[in-house]
């Protein structure tokens, strides 16, 4: 008697999304799968991609990051080149944190100029993040959308600002990252709102908000998994690639606190904290990971084997 193994199949397929690159660069394509991650069955046309974050604002770097990206502080374009050619980042997440009134106070036009610089310095795909101040972001996104010399993704659109962000993206041909606070229903709602505006689904990524290890990662894990299962089960609004931003891992005390020698080498600890967070996101179904430590680009890319 032969027993045929039961292979779970899903009716849905994740929408393929392309993060466009500049001339000579290689675009990042994610999505297209009809199965859960890291499993042998189904099609997985594109492996998850790992990118790096560049922050424009001043910040106190954790020890693990200070030694590697500290030297590039205040020079986003140089860091961008290093991320791509030196460390193998497949895309860049440019956080315009310097435009936040509480952090340095760069103007909106300064932010737009940095976007132009970074786009000129590298041909790799870029996602541009806001500064987190609702008021400033309201002016920043339109300025960035206009200034960007090639298509980028704007991060992020939520219920309060989606018209503005999506409007700017539509006008200049960019994509958007739809954000929700670890809630599958809000994730679907923001995507429905974008669809109502006529925003093309193949230019939308889902950011479910990633909590760092020990600081909400398990919530994120279950939401990423549920979003993916809903998408594969036929919910078109959730059948979209998921972006996990690992920045929160560095906010953990365990990842940055050098005053606890009993916890081991703080530099290694920080890197490992981000790596563990990223691995969990990959297992849950993330398609794009944004990390900060160069070595994690390599490690997570290796783990993202299909």
């Amino acid at each position: 008697m032969t027993v045929s193994p039961s292979i779970p199949t899903f009716p849905g397929r994740i929408l393929e999304v392309t993060l466009p690159a500049g001339p000579g660069g290689s675009p990042v394509v994610v999505g297209g799968q009809n199965a859960l991650p890291l499993l042998p069955e189904g099609d997985h046309p594109h492996a998850p991609a790992v990118g790096m974050e560049i922050r424009t604002g001043p910040e106190e770097l954790p020890p693990a990051l200070a030694e590697v990206i500290g030297p590039f502080s205040g020079n986003p374009a140089a860091l961008a080149q290093k991320c791509v050619s030196g460390w193998g980042a497949r895309f860049l997440f440019l956080s315009l944190s310097g435009c936040n009134p509480d952090a340095g106070g760069q103007g909106v036009q300064d932010g737009a100029a940095i976007v132009r610089e970074v786009l000129a310095a590298t041909a790799t795909p870029v996602i541009v993040g806001g500064c987190g101040d609702e008021d400033v972001d309201g002016r920043l996104f339109p300025a960035v959308a206009e200034a960007a010399t090639r298509p980028v993704f704007l991060s992020y659109a939520e219920e309060k600002n989606y018209r503005l962000v999506a409007g700017a993206a539509l006008a200049y041909g960019h994509g958007v990252v739809s954000w929700s606070p670890i809630d599958i229903n809000i994730a679907k709602q923001i995507n429905l709102l974008l669809a109502d505006l006529g925003f093309p689904g193949e230019r939308v990524l889902i950011d479910p908000l990633t909590g760092g290890l020990g600081y909400g990662l398990e919530y994120t894990y279950s939401i990423v998994e549920r979003v993916r299962l809903a998408g594969l089960s036929g919910d078109a609004m959730l059948a979209r690639p998921i972006l996990c931003h690992l920045g929160d891992a560095w906010k953990a005390r365990e990842a940055s606190d050098a005053s606890e020698p009993g916890w081991g080498d703080s530099a290694l600890r920080g890197r490992r904290w981000e790596e563990a967070t990223g691995l969990a996101c990959l297992a849950a179904g993330a398609d794009l990971l944004v990390c900060r430590h160069p070595e994690n680009v390599k490690r997570l890319s290796e783990a993202a084997w299909r």
């Binding site: 809630d183 229903n185 809000i186 679907k188 709602q189 429905l192």
Partner: peptide, 15 residues
């Protein structure tokens, strides 16, 4: 609470 959040939309998240 999850069902409430699902319904907090027009007409519903399960539109």
């Amino acid at each position: 609470m999850e069902r409430y959040q699902r319904s907090l939309f027009l007409p519903h998240t399960d539109e």
